[in-house]
């Protein structure tokens, strides 16, 4: 198997997995918190928040990447602050690619989690409260475990979306070999050079394998969490 792909191609896959995993794991708590806020709280600006979360889903990815560049670029308000305070540069780095992937994956993650939080009967939370549970304990023992299938589904969707992210990544993090050239960017690059077709085919097969793998892992997680009635999608 290792002979089937070149070292450079393995590096592309390793980078893609790293970027996608970090994007999903780092945004998971935010996504769940947003999903919970939108599903369970009524506050002024809720519709606006919902719309803002969904924005990357409807915007051209290149626009999202450009907005990230404005905000997180070296001269951007957040990017400049990060660089001066922590010495962290996001532009043209794999962390930047992970940020772009996370922003693009966020709407899908929030959607899946929100649906599963809304499906948790509030009456069960009320029952937990009347049995003596604080709001936090009722959340941790009722809402959170019962929305686990949605968390798994959201994580899987987010991972698949991150793995395939192209437009925002190439705009914000660029296409630098070994640093930000993820699977889709490598496939795109392969198509630009003469004789790159066989590399493209190999990478495309790997993309299919990884995406199917993510789907199967999350199905397995859902089943193991006892959600017999729960389906990932």
């Amino acid at each position: 198997m290792s002979g089937w792909l070149s070292a450079a191609e393995w590096a592309v896959i390793g980078l893609s997995l790293k970027v996608s995993l970090v994007a999903v794991l780092a945004s998971l708590p935010f996504a769940y918190a947003l999903a919970w806020l939108i599903a369970r709280r009524r506050f002024p600006g809720r519709m606006l928040l919902d719309a803002a979360v969904h924005l990357p889903l409807v915007l051209p990815p290149v626009v999202t990447g450009w907005l990230l560049l404005l905000a997180f670029g070296r001269n951007g308000p957040i990017g400049g602050w990060l660089e001066q305070t922590f010495g962290i540069t996001l532009v043209f780095t794999w962390v930047g690619a992970a940020l772009a992937a996370a922003v693009m994956a966020l709407p899908l993650m929030v959607r899946a989690m929100r649906l599963s939080i809304e499906a948790v009967d509030r009456k069960l939370v009320e029952a937990a409260r009347s049995l003596g549970a604080s709001p936090l304990r009722a959340f941790a023992t009722i809402t959170l475990p019962l929305s686990l299938p949605g968390i798994a589904a959201g994580a899987m969707l987010g991972f698949a979306r991150s793995l395939g992210e192209f437009g925002a990544t190439i705009t914000f993090a660029a296409n630098i070999e070994g640093k930000t050239r993820t699977l889709p960017l490598a496939i795109y690059t392969g198509l630009q050079v003469p004789g790159g077709e066989s590399a493209v085919a190999r990478l495309a097969i790997m993309a299919i394998v990884l995406s199917l793998g993510a789907l199967m892992v999350s199905e397995w997680l859902v089943r193991r969490s006892g959600g017999s009635r729960a389906h990932v999608l």
């Binding site: 009967d121 009456k123 069960l124 009320e126 029952a127 409260r129 009347s130 003596g132 549970a133």
Partner: peptide, 14 residues
Amino acid sequence: PEARRAGYVFQDGR
């Protein structure tokens, strides 16, 4: 609710 210490048996069990 948790401070009231009600033993509430809901109609739908819950």
